[in-house]
Design a protein around this nucleic acid. Structure first.
Lengths: 222, 222
DNA sequence: CTGCATCCGCCTCGATACTG
DNA sequence: CAGTATCGAGGCGGATGCAG
């Protein structure tokens, strides 16, 4: 295992998760346990030997562990250990930062609706959460997830909301275009690529939580 | 420039800062502007061509920019753009995460006191800051920096504090050993590798800010 | 069919030498 | 001091093979 040989926690962290593909494997596992072949599908281009090597290394270090898959007793699934799950803030901050680098989807690019789920978690701004308890549901290219606000704290979770105050329906490209502030939700609604139903006031509160209301659409320099 | 070809903000971020050495360059620049040869010294093993390539790429993307060095009008220094500086939370979270992976300093490992400055910033827990305005000074192998608490918010800065309520003097290895919770500040004082002067109550408040008081010395699994 | 291990061409990386 | 040029070694990516 290659190392920077620096006695610094950043360098040490990068010794473990800084090699190619490794943090993307963590990204997938942050969305839930995953089987080997599922990871191969989620990460086009990775090469099966590399995935096996990375999983073995991450398992040895204690970032990832195996456990029997839910559906099939024989098959095994990979999941993050609690230690590995502590990478979530780093990955979410990277997601937030990378959002501004995303232009329109290039022709050869792969897109997965699940990634939008991560994007929402990255956009949530703890300071902008109102004290009204309610849920917002998102349906992005068939993938369904929601944000729950309880006690002025917002959490994202998979699956539909029980009684959503707002439902947003769109496609992955539009979703990321909104998240990267290239268009506003209102423009998306106007052009018909986003459908918002529910309480208009809840729509505004949800937009605020995701930091999409302010004029702070900072552009990428140069 | 190599890419994952995924339309996902995490993958896009890693396209830019995920290659070898790149995030360590950012780490150095987070500590202030730096000249080419200084970066070469800070990052042993990088290879001068790779540093040049990375700096050029980061400059084109808008993460880094050049500006005339302060001391010498002709010489140029590299610094982060505001966009690049937004990588700070990601790097600090990684620093926090990697702290638990740091054992005792291996024989061949390089150590720089400046890295401890980053470690302190990574350890600061916004929720554990008392509402007493005061400063804490740290002297680690000659490098001096401090934490300022104002309005229940803690900030780390380079240089000495004006009127520190506490001064901690130690070496880099001990400093990181404390940060990784392998020993407590009290054990370090007892064994003579850490010297704390000032108000004992301030020492406790500072320890709390850095999350060093609780029993939460979570170990690395397996 | 899933879950890897092996093999091979290629491209990045790392070290040294060289130039403005 | 601040890079560019060159070249060998090794990690990476893709195809294939094989065991449970």
């Amino acid at each position: 295992m290659r190392s920077y040989h620096e006695y610094c926690s950043v360098a040490r962290a990068l010794d473990v998760v800084g090699e190619r593909w490794t943090l993307l494997i963590v990204r997938e596992l942050l969305l839930g346990p995953r089987r080997y072949n599922e990871l191969l599908e989620d990460l086009p281009g990775i090469g099966t030997n590399l995935l096996a090597d990375r999983l073995k290394m991450l398992t040895e270090i204690g970032v990832v562990r195996q456990r029997p898959a839910r559906t099939d007793g024989r098959a095994k699934a990979y999941e993050l250990t609690p230690f590995g799950a502590e990478l979530r803030p780093s990955v979410l901050h990277l997601a937030r930062w990378g959002m501004r680098l995303l232009g329109d989807p290039p022709p050869g690019a792969v897109t997965r609706p699940r990634w939008g789920f991560l994007a929402v978690q990255a956009l949530i701004q703890p300071g902008s959460v109102d004290s009204i308890d309610e849920d917002y549901e998102f349906r992005v290219d068939g993938e369904v997830f929601h944000i729950s606000v309880r006690d002025a704290t917002a959490n994202a979770a998979a699956g539909p909301a029980e009684n959503p105050a707002m439902v947003a329906v769109t496609d992955t490209a539009t979703f990321i275009r909104i998240g990267s502030r290239r268009i506003t939700p209102f423009e998306a609604v106007a052009s018909g690529v986003l459908t918002l139903t529910g309480d208009p006031a809840a729509v505004m509160r949800c937009s605020a939580i995701l930091g999409l209301t302010g004029a702070g659409a900072a552009a990428v320099p140069a």
